[in-house]
Nucleic acid binder design. Sequence first.
DNA 1: CGCTTCGTTGAAGATGTTCAATCCAGGTGG
DNA 2: CCACCTGGATTGAACATCTTCAACGAAGCG
Lengths: 250, 250
Amino acid sequence: MSLIDTVVMRGLSTQGVLSPEDKALLLSLELSPRYMSASEVIWQESEDADLFCVVKEGWAYSYRNLKNGSKQILKFYLPGDIIGIRDFGFTRRLASAAMINKGVICPFSYQQLFELFGRSSLAVGIVATATRQQAQLSERMIYLGKYAAHEKLAHFLYEIYLRLKRINAVEDNSFFVPLTQELISDALGMSPVHVSRTFSILRDEGLVIRNRQHVKLPDPEALARLVEFNDSYIDELLPPSFSELLKASP
Amino acid sequence: MSLIDTVVMRGLSTQGVLSPEDKALLLSLELSPRYMSASEVIWQESEDADLFCVVKEGWAYSYRNLKNGSKQILKFYLPGDIIGIRDFGFTRRLASAAMINKGVICPFSYQQLFELFGRSSLAVGIVATATRQQAQLSERMIYLGKYAAHEKLAHFLYEIYLRLKRINAVEDNSFFVPLTQELISDALGMSPVHVSRTFSILRDEGLVIRNRQHVKLPDPEALARLVEFNDSYIDELLPPSFSELLKASP
DNA sequence: CGCTTCGTTGAAGATGTTCAATCCAGGTGG
DNA sequence: CCACCTGGATTGAACATCTTCAACGAAGCG
């Protein structure tokens, strides 16, 4: 799973906006893979920020340690996601990041990114990627706000389902989720105990079947209705007008 | 309050990265002011997205209507903020936006933004602005997650305080907040009744004095300690390395 | 002066947390 | 092959926090 396969970049590519040099530049960002073990820390809060990482294999997450001893997970990163965009424009990391299971990540420096900015189309791609992350974050905030536990969990699982489907990691509505209930609880802001109870409720309603790290959604559409999921923020390509604007501007 | 006075752009400017043409281009974005009345809707969820707005006067907010009849507020916009960054890269608005009190906003089109992308330094400025918004969003999500009501409210008030101080709208630790408790409750995901009770708690602890739309923080440092506020995500300038990288790249 | 909107207060009930005990599957070592 | 160990998942019961509903109070505005 590489950057060029990202929704945004694939969109730009199929719209004929990316030159061969653009593509070569993009691919050059992923030449130095780093093999990570499970739970290995990628960086800590407050460290100097000077690079991004593309996740090629495995899952990662970013989080902040809270004063009460627990932590709040901000985002889970799946293969193809970029870690560290949030910190761009700051000198230090605003949150820690770590692997969940073992995997491979490809670091690339701000310097390399600045070279991308010399090419409008790639700059637009990066901005669009950043705002998509923001959109996902907003969407989660809506659910953390006023919705009940079973709606939070349902929304969370459906989002993961869509993101995994996008990278062909869903088969027969089943997928692999290397998360403990404690990690899920840290992401949704609820207690681990209540995550367990909430899973039971969703199971009894026939919406979610979970066996250790395997999750199956027997009726994804029913789940989508429950959470009123607007999947445009995950699946939608870049607006067609973008390619015209890009071709028109210098 | 104009775009060029934004933390990010001011940083680029004082670091000598912006050319006179860059600055002229930035200012040209704000030539068509639109006068808005209180509560006037700027755009609705699902409308076509093809422009941003700079807030010049007044407060605005973005929100999503929830199925249970209430709404979740995603962000309050103060003078100098850009509304609509979240939707960039999507064909439709992901959330509605409206004014709180009366004010002035300056719309500018995606087309105009694409012209900015022709200049690396401005593109970087826009990306940094977008990621700062994301940082603020993350910070709020941390508080929506596992913190108690009085911590959520304290964090919220302290963030507003810092953002207002940045634009010189705080005097003697007092500032004007054109929000009802209901709006605050929609932002923090709690009931209006509980916002009221929580204000009482903060008042009894001598941390917040509120009189209608006027708020005073007698001891901002104490409040900052309570919420362990990391103000770098609001106040920090762009890393100095950015100007070097920008001057170095084509 | 009376209307309207916003804020406050009380009481009852829902939702989620905490703590502790128990269960279960997989991995380890005898 | 089985006993044991371990980390996660589940369950129950007591408790805390927050919501809801309804009534009342206070400020701004015609």
